[in-house]
Each structure stands twice: as C-alpha cells, then as structure tokens.
Design a protein around this nucleic acid. Structure first.
Lengths: 230, 230
DNA sequence: CCGGAACGTTGTCCCGCCGCAAACTGAGGG
DNA sequence: CCCTCAGTTTGCGGCGGGACAACGTTCCGG
C-alpha cells in the first residue's frame, strides 16, 4: 500500500497544530478505506472497534427507532471525525453510519483514542469544538422542529444541505450527493408526499430544480426567505 | 465563609476518581452561590467567565430564537456540570441558563478548565460521558418531535421530567420543580392550549393530577403506554 | 379587603398536513 | 428489449391541532 500523504491531515482542525512528524505517526497507524454509496460503515450497537475520519464524501448518521424505520439523519461533511464512541467512553456505537455518496475514510483502532488525546496537543480541544458545533446543530434542528411550519423546515433543511456540501454553479447550488425526498422528509419530520409537493411548487416558481435523487437550489436567497430567516 | 465539605463532590462522576486532597484543591477554588427560582445564571452571548456545577435543584437551559420567545429547554439535574463553554473553546455562552427552582451551584473561572482537564485524571473522561448522554437526549428529542404525535410527545416529556427529578409518593411521581403548561408546550413544540386540554383529559382519567405550576404523574405506567413506548 | 396580573381552562372555527390510493417515469438487470 | 422496482407525482378526504377569544382561578401587592 502506498504511503498516505501528510497533506491529507495537515489542514484539518484536529491535526492543524501538529508537526509533520506527528502527522506521519498518526497516518502510519491509519487504515484507509473506500465505501460505496449506500454502504453501512458501522451499525448501531456494534462494538466500537474503530473511529473514523471522513476524507471525502458525506456520511449520513441515522438512528432507527425500535418500532419502525423512523430515522433522524445527521450529515457529516468531509474533514470531520465520526464514530468517536471511544471519546464518550462507550464501547458500542450509538447510531448507524451510512455512506451517502462514495466516500473515503481513514480509521484507527479505538484504543488509540486515549493516546491521541494525551499525546497530541490540540487534538482534544479541536474535537471538543467540533462536538460543540454538532450540538449546536442539533439544538437548531430541535428549534426548527418545535417552532417552524413544515414548509419552513424543508426550506431550511435544503439550505443546510446545500451550504454543507453543495457545489456552486453560478448562483445555483447543487446538493453534492444523492438524496431522496423520503430522506428529506425524515430529516424534517414530514412525509415524502408533502416534500414532493413542496418541491414541485418551488420548481414551478424557479426556486429549485430537482431530478431523481438530486436537488439543485437555483435561488438560495428566495429559499432562505421561505425558511423563516432565523 | 465556612469551608465546603469534600463529600459534596466525592460522589459525582467528574470527580469520582479523585483523591480527597485533590477534591480539596478544587473546592478551595470554587465559589458557591444560591440562586432564587427564576433567576438567570448566565445569558446567551455573555462572556463565558465561569463554569458551573449544579449541587441542588434544576437548571433550565434555553435557547431563544431571534424572532420571538421560542425556546428549547433542556433540563439539567443536580450533580451535573453546565455552562461549560470553555470546554468547547468558546468564550461566550451559547444559551441561557435559568434556575427552574431554587438552586445552589459551585462555579470556577473558565481559565481553570484546562488545568482541571490536564491535572485531574478522569475529569475529562467523565465530562465526555455526560456530554455524550446529553447528545443522546437531544437525539431522542429530535426523534420524538419528528415522528410522534403531540399527545405522545407530551406524555414522554412528562415522563422524562418525572424520571429526571421526580420525588416518588407511593406509585405516583411528583415533578420536583414548578413548571407551567406553557413550558411543557415549548418543550414539545405545541401550544399551551393543547397541553392544557391533554392534562385535563388525563386528569379525568386519573393518569396525572396537576395544580398550578405543578404536575404529578399518578399512573406512570399508563402514561408510558400513551408515550408510544420507545 | 380589593384590584390586577399571571396562570389556567374551555369552546369554536378553520386550515395545513397526513393517510391512502393510483398512476407515471426513469434506471438497471436479465 | 422488456420487465421490474424504486422513486416520484398528484388528487382527495379527513382531522388534528393551531389561532382566537372569553371566562375562571390563584396569587400578590397595596
């Protein structure tokens, strides 16, 4: 296996304060792997043997409730850690991670976590920051669900996805991974029917343009207005 | 000021692995303070000068959205840390903390955080665990909001509150701090009208009994059934 | 003892959203 | 090339629950 290039990690928050030799150490412990779209990286309840760093693509973290297929997806963009159960002292993953697109990720055995935290300056701090942001995101999501109407929720979910991993095409933003209306519906706590209707209406207005498993926001500004401008 | 007793901290997770002298050190840095019910401990956006440990009572952490009074309360029970913005590298609080009942809390200057983490074994680990649990709670809340009907949401919110800080009276559980229907409504993303109606109906069925700013769950089992048994 | 404010209850109306059902459309496999 | 199926679209009916409003009740200050 070819050696991984140090520049992969150098710019990322958890490693930004580390020296090249330190990054080399870390990389030499890492196992790179590619996952096809739709592949499950790890399952809810699995023993948490490794933790991951997403190099490219998007991960969808879902929580399936026991009684059915209800899920609460959280999307994790490239450059972030995920599956960090060891950080929380858990020996089992609390959720399932699915590749939302083709992804490539590095992983390390869970028992390395403690070493990383104690040995590498800034690793813990930066990880805390990421977790803090993720909690903020969850809070915002709760606020949306609790206070906003369905239309606003869907609008803000689309904007969120677009901002997080969209590729700009002029003024338009194309969401960078395949996503079904059913998934949007799950994220926003509604049904795929309603999402479909909304997208149709918006498409008629020229705010978005959608195809099968794919959504492009052509006029982000107007969508933002619809989202109830928080 | 009388010296604080070491037993206050000895049993709590973040300090459980520490020796008595270490606990003594920590206590000598702490500033104890009592807050009346309804007092704001810190405000969203304030400079995060201190972090807190709740010794007794209940803290309500709220996030007010810019456009109005919408909030997403998270209740923190006695024995937990809160306002730990420094852990996330923030220099400002991301939410407002209000005393839901009369409380007593210890606090330390934010700059102590780093020292606690590096000097005291287990402090960081245990704090991570707490944060992990809190994230799990947020996830569960999102799942509820996204998938359950209003009646189920209210039922599970009441159960949650009862479990978290209820005092048992026979089979009944009385929620241990004053709470208005409006607050329950905010937690569950509905209106006080609906909450009021539900409580009336449940009271007629003998499942709960409520007074002004006070709710007692007399038949937790039946309420659990209503909550959609997750 | 009185007045007012905060909190709670209850009724009525109406709209937005879910459930159900049926048809359409690409994509992929044999 | 056709068959199948996942993904999507659309119509329609019903109702949960939000908006509005009026009244009752408890608490507190003067």
């Amino acid at each position: 296996m070819a050696k991984l290039d140090e520049s992969l990690l150098a710019g990322l928050p958890p490693f930004s304060r580390l020296s090249r030799p330190q990054i080399r150490e870390i990389l030499d412990l890492a196992m790179p792997r590619r996952f096809e779209e739709g592949t499950t990286v790890f399952h809810d309840g699995d023993p948490a043997e490794r933790f991951f760093l997403l190099l490219d693509g998007i991960i969808r973290v879902v929580r399936t409730t026991p009684d059915g297929a209800q899920v609460i997806p959280l999307h994790i963009p490239a450059g972030q850690l995920f599956g960090i159960a060891p950080a929380f002292g858990r020996d089992t993953y609390p959720a399932t991670a699915v590749a939302a697109a083709e992804i490539v990720a590095l992983s390390w055995p869970s028992h390395c976590w403690g070493g990383f935290v104690s040995r590498y300056d800034g690793f813990a701090t930066e990880t805390w920051k990421t977790i803090g942001e993720r909690m903020g995101e969850l809070h915002a999501r709760i606020a949306d669900l609790a206070t906003k109407a369905v239309e606003q929720r869907v609008a803000s979910a689309l904007l969120h996805l677009a901002n997080q991993s969209g590729t700009r095409v002029g003024n338009a933003i194309e969401i960078g991974f395949p996503i079904t209306r059913a998934e949007v519906a799950e994220m926003t706590g509604t049904t795929l029917h309603t999402v479909s209707r909304l997208l149709s209406a918006w498409e008629k207005d020229g705010i978005v343009s959608s195809a099968r498993k794919q959504i492009t926001v052509t006029e982000p500004h107007r969508l933002f207005l619809l989202s109830g401008a928080s």
